[in-house]
Design a protein around this nucleic acid. Structure first.
Lengths: 299, 299
DNA sequence: TGGAATCATAGCTGTACCCTATCACTGATT
DNA sequence: AATCAGTGATAGGGTACAGCTATGATTCCA
């Protein structure tokens, strides 16, 4: 009968304790806390119905049974360790690590994709970075990033872009601000001089300015937020109104201070895309990445 | 590097699917549902970064990678299967299975001990039986039961009894019953003629009658409950009052119909004990059993 | 006697796995 | 052609359990 309650992790524990004869140090080696390891060893012992380690509060000693089990466990771990090698070239090419860039204004997209990403790329170190489009594109081309989520403003032959989804903009204004009296909100209702925006370099700033062409020459207020979060705080404290991507307005954060209003037309917004280096775009991991991100789109 | 996220169970899955090339049948063999198995295989594949099985909705075929992994998995399972044998005589003597008897009136004790029992005797088939003292003692002596939880009324040299705890009795009366007017409830307040009891053979019945000596000759009502549960129903429907062990009154079940009252003296009650065959009493598993039960005592 | 070292216990939390129900697809049967 | 049976995938929800921190109990040593 196969003891399917035994995990390879359990075997590491047994081997480690047998090696150190010390729970604390064994726990450190296994990267767990001492209580966790103690509990697990106890569990194993109670399953096996045998005492593997004699512990008398001052010294841990491995019993005969413990020694034998530990040896066998080491053997099994060894065999299990060979599994990844068995694949060799048969394994689909994968990312060594997955480094994703998000423009600041798309960071609200992260929570939606994170779970699925971790699932799809189990075992692969995942790092997310936030920044401006230019900054991220530079890093992407340099190879420091594998893919970037950005607005579809980038034209670069070295990059391939895959459409992700259209994200409408939403007006975020301090509660009671005059602009809120308008019904059927249109871009032309916005006055750049009344707006607070992200600082230079963030595409959301440019989009916000250009969305209402008549107002292009008004000077936006001199507050310069570097993240959506501070932008919201500025609005909340009455510094002016702003445009937010729909996802950033999700759940109406700070709704006691900020009012969120949809535009009359649902066409007001931006297209988000995935960017990756053109020559890498056809590789298997990228199609998995694209599929994963597309699947995670909210609504 | 050791893939400690792989479990032996996972390996069984891979081996089974490789063997049947059919998820449904493999799932049956592994005693899991087909979706569970599908998900796990998927998980393994995403960890390994390789496709182990080609499935095109009509047929499952094992890839080269899948075949190799399955072979190695089978080897590992084989090695793991040897573990229990390694113990041989070194294993502490254990129950093959643990068969516990509870007198009906102590069945409320079960939920308190169940979790700990399962923990202490992992892997060992556990069966609980309810019955009268005589019945259970007979089975215990015949070897059909390993231990019995009963009141301390049993005197039998072939059995050894270990004190468990003292459980007070509680009056359970239909809401509004005259007896509830008494404050400082004493055994002498009880009238056998007004009581409903378990049927002959249950020690709780005898205890209830004998607890109020003055009333021994009154005839209890002719309802005969065979379990605490029906006894409560009888009380709830107004058939009379009864005595319940404290644990059976725990959480005041049916409290819209039944009122529970403690006795003035906390001495009114019974001692619960663990019985086991005298010659077996010193064996290791029994001391573990005793310790486990003692630890699980409520309050 | 007090402090350091060490394993055990308690209580809580997050997550991975499992289940049921349902979907989506395919090939066969009428 | 249309329906049905067979199959794997997906969704949603519940639960068991390994993990954590904090604390306890015991022993050794100063």
């Amino acid at each position: 009968m196969i003891p399917s309650w035994l995990t390879l992790r359990d075997m590491e524990y047994v081997v480690a304790v047998a090696k150190h004869e010390h729970f604390g140090r064994a726990a450190t080696e296994c990267c767990v806390s001492q209580p966790s390891l103690s509990t697990q060893i106890r569990k194993i012992e109670s399953y096996l119905g045998a005492v593997l380690f004699e512990r008398n509060n001052r010294r841990v000693s491995t019993t005969m049974a413990g020694r034998r089990i530990a040896e066998q466990a080491a053997l099994i771990l060894d065999e299990a360790g060979k599994i990844p090698n068995l694949l060799g070239h048969m394994a689909v090419p994968r990312f060594e690590s997955l480094n994703l860039g998000f423009i600041s204004s798309a960071s609200s997209f992260i929570p939606f994709v994170l779970t699925d990403l971790k699932k799809a790329f189990r075992n692969i170190p995942l790092s997310l970075r936030e920044g401006t489009t230019d900054d991220l594109v530079k890093q992407l081309k340099a190879g420091a990033l594998d893919a970037v989520i950005a607005a579809d403003t980038v034209k670069d032959v070295a990059l391939k872009s895959t459409s992700l989804f259209f994200e409408p903009f939403v007006l975020a204004a301090p509660k009671g601000h005059p602009i809120l009296r308008k019904s059927n909100l249109k871009p032309s209702d916005l006055r750049a001089a009344e707006m607070v925006l992200l600082e230079e370099g963030h595409c959301l700033r440019d989009q916000a300015i250009h969305i209402c062409p008549k107002n292009r020459r008004g000077n936006p207020r001199t507050f310069h937020a570097t993240s959506i979060e501070t932008l919201r705080h500025l609005v909340a404290s009455g510094a002016g109104y702003t445009l937010l991507p729909k996802l950033a307005a999700n759940g109406k954060p700070m709704s006691n201070l900020i009012t969120y209003v949809d535009f009359e037309s649902s066409k007001i917004g931006r297209e988000l895309v995935i960017l990756c280096r053109a020559q890498a775009a056809d590789q298997d991991p990228f199609s998995l990445l694209n599929r994963t991100l597309l699947k995670a789109i909210p609504e």
